[in-house]
């Protein structure tokens, strides 16, 4: 099993996200994360999918997605040529005694505290998946009340692989 990050550029048609996710589910492909948002040109949406499977499956994923009528482009975002980011929001139980410890760990990871309540803190952290995972490991001794992760978004480095539209 390998993991690949795909960047997919699609026409911003109604139902396009369900077409993509439906393809993954009916063909039994694994999605580790999916994130989508409109591009600078509102006619298009950029989707980042992290998928896993053996090489044959990963090749099929690329071909089957490319075949969808709404798909303008699909390419692998290779780790050495790309930047990935994920945002996580973590609500941790923290009373007066624990608060400073949590803040200290958050600062080390350059996260920020975005909400404070008498018995909890909300942390925002951005980074590649490895960083987010490492941060969550450090919170192991604390009680995580709620966790929301966006899944990764990514872009290729430099101007070499940009898809120009129209």
């Amino acid at each position: 099993m390998r993991k690949k990050v795909f960047q997919i550029l699609v026409d911003n048609t109604p139902g396009v996200l369900s077409r993509i996710s439906g393809l993954f589910s009916r063909r039994g492909y694994n999605i580790e994360s999916i994130s989508a948002g409109v591009t600078a040109d509102p006619r298009f949406t950029r989707i980042t999918i992290v998928a896993s499977g053996d090489d044959d499956i990963l090749e099929q994923i690329e071909k089957q997605v490319r075949k969808l009528v709404d798909v303008r482009d699909i390419r692998e975002l290779k780790p050495e040529e790309s930047v990935y980011r994920e945002l996580a929001m973590i609500k941790v139980r923290a009373d007066d005694n624990m608060r400073q410890n949590v803040i200290a760990v958050t600062n080390i990871f350059r996260g920020s505290i975005i909400d404070v309540a008498p018995d909890s803190l909300m942390i925002e952290i951005t980074g590649n998946q490895g960083k987010v995972d490492a941060f969550l490991r450090l919170l192991h001794g604390y009680e995580i009340l709620e966790l929301a992760r966006t899944g990764i978004a990514g872009l290729g480095r430099g101007t070499e692989h940009i898809v120009y539209i129209d």
Partner: peptide, 11 residues
């Protein structure tokens, strides 16, 4: 004519 058929079941 369908590139996705090529390599789906055998290379």
């Amino acid at each position: 004519v369908d590139p996705a058929e090529i390599g789906k079941n055998t290379q």
